[in-house]
Amino acid sequence: MNDVVNVGGKLALICAVAAIALGLVNAVTAPAIDKVKEQQLSAALDAVRGTAEAGEERLVEGEPIVDGYYALVQDGTSAGYILRLTGTGYAGDMEILAAYRQDGEIKAVALMNNSETPGLGKEAEKPAYMEKYIGTGAGHPVPMNKQQLTQEEADAISGASITFMGIAQALKAGSDYVKEQLGK
């Protein structure tokens, strides 16, 4: 009995000291991390909004993929929406920002936080990667598999098909949301 108390107590003590140390480090780094996240979001917003102005974010409840949206305004008239989407990638969730026209056509996409494999799925962070989706969603369907891509585009995503399909699914859901809920 004494042994259990002794061993358990020492382990608990180690854990407690570790927890205090981590709490201190967290207190120091939390403001810096929040700032980085804010910068990332505003940089991504700037990248996808083009020349239009984005309004305040409205949160969306009860949708699996669409988390929120910003209304876009250009020269006083409505110019579509930016949606904040959560896609499922190869290694967990991917945060995606996508700008849509009012008919659901994709104007611009940016991949934000993700845990995709460096050198493979991470390539989706490059702006050129998203070109295959732009202009789809209304007249043309969003490409959901490799057959719908050109040979060159299909080669470029080789080794990272799951990332590609995850983004495509999220963008498709976003397009449908714009068409069914917002575009009316």
Binding site: V25, T29, A32, I33
Partner: peptide, 17 residues
């Protein structure tokens, strides 16, 4: 526990800075 504490510190510092 000791290793994980140091790893978490590294992770937090990297995320922030």
């Amino acid at each position: 526990v000791i290793i994980a504490s140091f790893v978490t510190m590294v992770d937090l510092f990297m995320q922030g800075y």
